[in-house]
Amino acid sequence: MATISRLVSVAVIVAAMTISAACANDDVPPQSAPSSLGPSEKVLNVLAWPGYAEDGSTNRAVDWVRPFRQLTGCQVHVKTFGTSDEAVAQMRTGEFDVVSASGDASRRLIDAGDVQPINTTLISNYGAIYPFLKDQPWNAVDDTVYGVPHGWGANVLMYRTDVVRPAPTSWRAVFEDARRYAGRVTAYDSPIYIADAALYLMRHRPDLRITDPYALDTTQFAAAVALLTEQRTAVGEYWNDVVREVQAFGAGWSVIGSAWQVAANLASDGGAPVATVLPEEGSTGWSDSWMIAGRTPHRNCAYRWIDYVVGPRVNARIAEYFGESPANSESCALMRNREHCAVYHSDDPAYAARIWYWTTPMRQCLDGRTDVECVDYAEWSKAWLEIKG
């Protein structure tokens, strides 16, 4: 089980970890997927969410970078990021060879040519990845794979059981009923949170005909923005730092809102009376994928890294440390905490099917409509700033 001190340390290293000096790889031509791998280039620059590429500097017992270096000869330099927008900006510098991208970043990287197609036959562990994570809109385009799944989870509804009664079963508790908890509602601080409102409207406003919370025309988008603008009056804090959210629930500053399961685990470990539910409408969620830079000079090390971190044992360690479900179907049997996969519903396809995984909104509607244009991520970003005031 994760601990408060561990996540505090992870938060600190977001700013502290550094990467070796590198220049943009403008002199490297755009690359298609290779048919085979060559010798190690001895260097790999990794851009990752905190907790995905640990090297023992945070906790000596948590290190999967050093064994990789010993196994392959690739010297790994890691830089972490705090948001998907930051990851996209960093990848465009050309300084990184691989990135752990969430679905609200991956399509932007693909469309900009910042990442390249992946030959999955060169990833020996690819066959063990859960099928529902493969060849999805956030990691593949037109049957071409750009990302190898790494870990996933749902954005659940967390609440304090001593305040929120009866136990909520719907996202209505943070939208139409949010006034009951005015000033103590919390929500994820990102433009992609607009999809949470759209998901709620899918069920409760059938007249809008929303079929995909990431594919919103102007009318549908306006309705979601209106719902979030109304919710704003009840929100005490928007969060993008798990540690901060855990502290808010522990102190009672927040009593209900969207969360990751790891936050609930940590809050409970700290003595806070909290519980989570996947509401009746389902939820949004994330499925992170490893992607390779479009012009990397270290492609052989990049492929070896991806194959290594999605292998069953390492993928199990990362999932436990970060607080998510592994992507490798063989990892659950290797968990040190035997309850981990039950808590995160790793082997529950029905649970996974209720999650709408983060996907980059595009003008070309993701739901297949061709008679309208959908609102793209740039417009989502502008609207989010206006929602928060």
Score class of each variant (00 low, 15 high):
S20T: 09
A198I: 01
V343I: 15
T3M: 10
T144V: 11
T284G: 07
A22G: 09
G94K: 07
T3H: 11
V28P: 04
S289P: 02
C341L: 11
G51F: 04
P34T: 01
K79W: 00
L334V: 02
V88M: 08
R165V: 01
V246F: 07
A226G: 13
C374F: 10
G282S: 12
E230L: 11
Q231A: 13
G252S: 04
I256A: 04
E339L: 14
D142F: 10
W152D: 05
Y130A: 11
V62L: 05
M91A: 08
V174T: 05
Q231D: 05
T80E: 08
V88R: 09
R6I: 08
A333I: 06
R180C: 03
E379I: 08
N240G: 08
G285R: 10
S36L: 01
I306P: 03
R165H: 13
L122E: 02
R232H: 12
G252F: 07
V115C: 00
R160T: 01
A264V: 07
V242Y: 11
T80C: 05
T219S: 10
N315K: 09
P168S: 03
A197P: 07
F132E: 13
C301T: 03
L47I: 00
G250M: 06
T121Q: 15
P166V: 05
C23W: 10
G51T: 03
C374K: 15
G271T: 05
A263N: 11
D142C: 08
T93K: 14
M202K: 14
A342K: 15
F68G: 00
R313C: 07
L208I: 08
I110D: 06
K134Y: 11
P206I: 03
L227S: 13
T169W: 00
Q31T: 00
Q261A: 10
I129Y: 14
D371Y: 12
